[in-house]
């Protein structure tokens, strides 16, 4: 397999953002944005991607590793095609989020942070998504589609079933999302 390379889009974005930070500070400041963009490109951030980012931004691999593992949104393992993230925090919990989350686990045959056997859906319990008045809430990311993720609000068992059906058919039901 060919060695990984940061995409031309990432290179362009680095050049665009570089002058927005003071001299000597930009490489480090760009650590988070480049981690995020690299994840959009590769799906997850492994040791090879860490080395690429460290070399490009003139940081140590140790620093980039420390940052990438500190933040929840950086996937250390390769997620399924869809990443279904269900909030169970207080606003959602009060409205039945654990019923929704349990339904996801049962239908996908997984526990929290696992991927379904067919590699289609990774299920993750997440903390507050700042949509508490419309709970339970979930967010879905699709590998290779940065224009997703979408929020799915006011979930109940019927709605989460419809969402899981659509994911099984290979599509994000954007008509149900916000």
């Amino acid at each position: 397999m060919a060695a990984k390379q940061l995409s031309n889009e990432i290179e362009a974005r680095i050049r665009q953002l570089w002058p927005r930070f003071p001299e000597g500070k930009a490489g480090r400041a760009l650590c988070l944005p480049v981690l995020y963009m690299a994840q959009e490109q590769f799906g997850h951030v492994d040791a090879e991607v860490i080395d690429l980012i460290a070399a490009r931004l003139e940081l140590t691999p140790a620093h980039v590793t420390g940052v990438s593992t500190f933040y929840f949104m950086i996937n250390k393992d390769r997620p399924g095609r869809y990443h279904l993230q269900v909030c169970t925090n207080i606003g959602c919990q009060l409205m039945g989020a654990y019923d929704v989350f349990d339904r996801c686990k049962a239908r996908l045959g997984v526990s929290n942070r696992q991927t379904s056997r067919d590699d289609n859906v990774t299920l993750t319990e997440v903390e507050c998504l700042a949509a508490c008045g419309f709970g339970p809430v979930a967010q879905i990311a699709e590998r290779g589609k940065p224009e997703i993720p979408l929020y799915f609000e006011n979930l109940d068992l019927k709605k989460i079933d419809a969402i899981l059906d659509a994911l099984a058919e290979g599509r994000v039901p954007t008509e149900l999302g916000n």
Binding site: G27, R28, L32, L35, L59, F72, I74
Partner: peptide, 18 residues
């Protein structure tokens, strides 16, 4: 990138510095 603590202003600055 997903960290509640970054809403704390000094943590936010640490994060913004990369």
């Amino acid at each position: 990138l997903g960290a509640y603590i970054c809403g704390e202003e000094t943590a936010l600055l640490s994060s913004l510095e990369g």
